[in-house]
Simulated assay, not measured.
Amino acid sequence: MFNRDYDKDPFIVIWELTRACQLKCLHCRAEAQYKRDPRELSFEEGKNLIDQIYEMDNPMLVFTGGDPLMREDVYDIADYAIKKGVRVSMTPSATPNVTKEAIEKAKEVGLARWAFSIDGPTAEIHDHFRGVSGSFDLTMKAIKYLHELEIPIQINTVISRYNIDVLDDMAKLVEDLDCVLWSVFFLVPTGRGQESDMISPVQHEQVFTWLYNLSKRVKFDIKTTAAQHYRRVVIQNKMREHVANHEDINYEDALMKGATGTIDGLGRAPKGVNDGNGFVFISHVGDVYPSGLLPVKAGNVRETPLAEIYRESPIFKSLRNPDLYKGKCGVCEFRFVCGGSRSRAYAMTGDYLESEPFCVYIPKALRNKEGKESLSK
């Protein structure tokens, strides 16, 4: 799993089963609708897609939406994948669809983990963000059901200006809810997400440092999305700690190879998963994208096999080549493990190879250049 070649096979596949959803989230990537789209991939097409995914060295598969529970055949699809040996998790919306019976059915099928979104430690903050009153209380009820059925819980949180000041309370809530993973998303202005909802570049850096310190004292894992530069912050902190402990590690070599699994503390993926690089997104109608946050279509599974799109598309191939990155990302010593959010670069500049616009770090190459220039003056 950890030694896979991202040029050939993804680490994780996200399949948007439907865009139908009863919520109206402020940041919704999918701009979800209340009704299902008649053009959605059918059950038979879904089975064919799962077969293709399995053949790509069996990556992790996540059902997302919209709300996956808006599809009546969601459990049939999950059952097919799980019986084939695919590890499946699901990110349903906290709506009245999430009944104890629905969760019991999921457990019977064998869904490995459920993920729910909580975007604030109080109903007031969360419900504002989700656009529906009562969403927070429904989420808490669903988590109670999951605990009763002993299903591991993942909490997803989008960091924005609405909750930046209550992150300590948010972390305490995740801890109190006894979750196995806190998946922290950093807003990308796509879909309904607005640039005005984002936190600043400096705040990104501050939250990264806070997350790293938090990771050392909580029992749940922490994972970030659209925050590739968090890896840099983790590695920098690890480097300082190793220096303080007089431990000898060749970080330069590790960074160039992108093989940071033993030193960065991120655990799951030993090299930097990024949009199109170990990551692929399939829309409800079969369109293939580097990620759900990078809306540049590379093909459609109804016309071209997924493996061919992932391996051969010029879009995917360019995203997997950090030497093509522009600006400071292109010369950064962390580019093989970080690479910046290609989604955010695209959203802010229109070019997915541009430099990550919300990173404050100045690469060594640029610092050395500035130093030499100042000496020559």
Rank of each mutant, 00 (worst) to 15 (best):
F279P: 00
I159T: 08
T224K: 03
K84F: 02
L366K: 12
A102E: 10
I50H: 03
G265L: 03
W182Y: 07
D275F: 08
F116H: 02
G65I: 04
A347G: 07
M239L: 15
P290S: 10
E205K: 14
K223F: 14
D119M: 01
T224I: 07
A347S: 12
K372S: 13
L181F: 03
S283T: 15
V13C: 08
G286V: 00
L353G: 02
Y54G: 02
V234Q: 13
R231W: 06
P152T: 02
I53Q: 02
V166T: 14
W114L: 15
E308L: 06
E124G: 07
F185W: 12
F136H: 04
E373T: 08
E175N: 12
A307K: 15
R268E: 14
Q194P: 02
V337L: 10
E44N: 10
I151D: 02
G276H: 05
E241A: 14
E247W: 10
P295Q: 13
A20G: 13
C332Q: 01
S133L: 12
D197S: 12
D5V: 07
Y310K: 06
A347C: 06
N97A: 12
Y352W: 11
W15Y: 09
C329Y: 03
Q194H: 10
L111H: 00
K271T: 14
M256H: 12
Y75A: 11
V62K: 13
L41F: 00
Q228K: 11
F11V: 05
M239D: 00
Y75M: 14
E124W: 08
S374V: 13
I249C: 06
P305C: 00
T304E: 05
L293W: 14
W182G: 09
L306Y: 01
V202G: 07
D73T: 04
V132A: 13
G191A: 08
D253F: 13
F220H: 15
Y230F: 15
E303D: 12
F2M: 11
G193H: 03
L149H: 01
D73I: 03
L61T: 05
Y212I: 09
K257E: 15
K83V: 03
I125F: 09
T18W: 02
T99Q: 09
S318T: 08
K35Y: 11
C329G: 06
Y6M: 06
E101A: 14
D67S: 04
R4W: 10
G286Q: 00
H204N: 13
L61K: 04
N58I: 04
F316P: 02
F336R: 14
R344A: 12
R4T: 09
V180R: 11
M140S: 08
I199C: 04
M170G: 08
L255N: 06
H126V: 05
S133I: 12
G134H: 05
T95D: 05
D176S: 15
D9M: 01
R217W: 07
P357T: 07
E148Q: 15
I153Q: 00
H204G: 03
V273K: 07
E247G: 01
T190C: 11
D119V: 01
C28M: 04
A259T: 13
L181S: 06
Y75V: 05
N3K: 10
A20N: 01
K317H: 02
H204T: 01
E303N: 13
C338H: 09
F2P: 10
R71C: 00
N213R: 13
Y145V: 02
I282L: 06
M256S: 14
